[in-house]
Design a protein around this nucleic acid. Structure first.
Lengths: 102, 102
DNA sequence: ACTATATATCAACAAAGATTGATGTGTCAT
DNA sequence: ATGACACATCAATCTTTGTTGATATATAGT
């Protein structure tokens, strides 16, 4: 639970950053794919989303920075996956079904 | 409740817009003031937030567009207030306390 | 009608974010 | 060690947002 006393400008800046990460439909789409498909490597994502690799890396980094997703390195591949808990901290349970269908 | 079938790209574009509205700490701050203080006119907001009128109007419009706030005209004044329900549709209950302290 | 106040809107500019193509780095197979 | 692949990062550019100061509109009081 967030304490009222935490709700200072610094906190607002943190949330600004998180909402900024969500304020792009490409990134929302990426999140949805990762949430529903699970662990996925960049090259597969690139195909699924029809996004060039470099653009994808750019957007993945933004989502990574605010911890909505995380990476695991396995040999040549980087597997990305969604962090349900971080997402659920922010979004209403109704909205979560955008990413996590019942 | 949002149906899985609604979760198409058009929907994502709608959410993109809502998150964009939240992705600025000035606007988050405006929301918080409106949520806690209730109905407030632009001139009072301008003082409370130390924002010039024109900048404030710009940000209010963005919040208005996505229905997080609404206006009532009364004589010379425009009174803005937060729309708790619209905000609660989007944000987790934890996060809502950013705006609506228990 | 005139003036003052409250607010919205506009045009010019500045700043931040996104896209593109190229280059760099690490890993694997040969 | 060489070549191919997976990916990150970078610099240049383009696009979108935000800011500023000025102007426009509406209302209220005199």
């Amino acid at each position: 639970m967030i304490e009222r006393s935490d709700v200072c400008d610094t906190t607002l800046l943190d949330y600004e950053k998180k909402f900024k990460a969500l304020s792009d439909h490409k990134r929302l789409y990426i999140l949805r794919i990762l949430a529903t498909e699970g662990k996925t490597c960049v090259c597969d994502l690139s195909e699924l989303l029809a996004l060039p690799q470099s653009k994808l890396s750019y957007h993945l980094k933004i989502l990574l920075d605010v911890k909505f997703i995380s990476v695991e390195k396995e040999g040549k591949w980087n597997y990305y996956s969604a962090n349900p808990n971080e997402i659920k901290k922010i979004l209403s349970s109704d909205l979560c079904c955008l990413f996590y269908p019942e």
